[in-house]
């Protein structure tokens, strides 16, 4: 579905990504981990269309990924993903309205009734059925992210991009969100790319894990070399040796091997 061939990204002299190649099948759940500034978010932005590769190709079904965001790829950011001036229900309805041509994208009559039904069903699915008429500032952080996910999913994008969506949440709420995301991923047959700082989360959620890191280092010019995908593994098939090596490389505790497999 997605073919990434030798993608590079540079800003002037600063090489962020180099020689990134991979291919992703429909329905995979790819988690992207790596140190801060390693280019994983930049890579997500390329999939989104707000950044373009400096060289190389990024193909979606054989066509280059459009260079601006559109409705084939939904996104949930860490924050600011919902519209603060709309109620919960209006936030989700807007997702349907924006698919209409026209200046305001407001829905009328039958279409509105249909959208209202879909929106309420989806909000029930994410557990926001009691908050339909609340504004985002009245919601907790976890509820806001649920809303952002519902909004992104209403019109069935094929690809869902998650940019550290749970980074600001409490651990308990995070676990609930994990269940929700896994359920929605299976139910809606999504292809998911998720950037996270948290290896444990990456192992728990993903079917495939990418680690972004620099292979080459020049101590005098840290910007001269970019990061690439140093590990690309199917989470269900990690070997013990590989697992331990990764743990050393990343210097971060990851869940015991038994939990992963």
């Amino acid at each position: 579905m997605i073919a990434i061939d030798n993608v590079n990204k540079t800003y002037g002299d600063n090489v962020v990504l180099e020689r990134v190649s991979a291919s992703v099948q429909e329905g995979e759940f790819v988690t992207l981990v790596g140190a801060s500034g390693c280019g994983k978010s930049t890579f997500l932005k390329m999939l989104l269309g707000t950044e373009v590769p400096s060289s190389g190709s990024l193909l979606l079904d054989g066509e280059p990924i459009p260079n601006e965001p559109d409705s084939s790829r939904g996104i949930v950011f860490q924050q600011y993903s919902v519209f603060p001036h709309m109620t919960v229900l209006a936030n989700v309805l807007a997702a349907r309205g924006f698919l209409q041509p026209g200046i305001t994208g407001r829905l009328w009559g039958k279409k509105r009734a249909q959208a209202l039904g879909d929106a309420k069903a989806l909000l029930l699915e994410v557990g926001l059925e009691h908050a339909l008429n609340k504004y985002p500032h009245e919601l907790s952080g976890g509820m806001r992210q649920r809303l952002a996910i519902a909004q992104a999913l209403l019109d069935q994008p094929r690809i869902l991009l998650l940019d550290e969506p749970f980074g600001a949440l409490d651990p308990g709420i995070r676990a609930d969100m994990h269940k929700l995301v896994l359920r929605l991923w299976k139910q809606h047959r999504l292809t998911v790319f998720m950037v996270t700082h948290d290896l444990q989360e990456a192992f728990h959620l993903g079917t495939r894990l990418w680690v972004f890191d620099k292979i080459r280092h020049d101590p005098d010019a840290p910007q001269a070399w970019g990061a690439t995908i140093t590990y690309d593994l199917s989470v269900t098939e990690v070997g013990v040796d590989e697992y331990q090596k990764m743990q050393e490389d990343l210097g971060q505790p990851i869940p015991p091997f038994s939990l992963v497999s």
């Binding site: 409705s71 939904g74 996104i75 950011f77 919902v82 807007a94 924006f98 698919l99 909004q151």
Partner: peptide, 8 residues
């Protein structure tokens, strides 16, 4: 960006 991913 979000609005655009919703098709606006």
């Amino acid at each position: 960006v979000k609005a655009q991913t919703l098709g606006a």
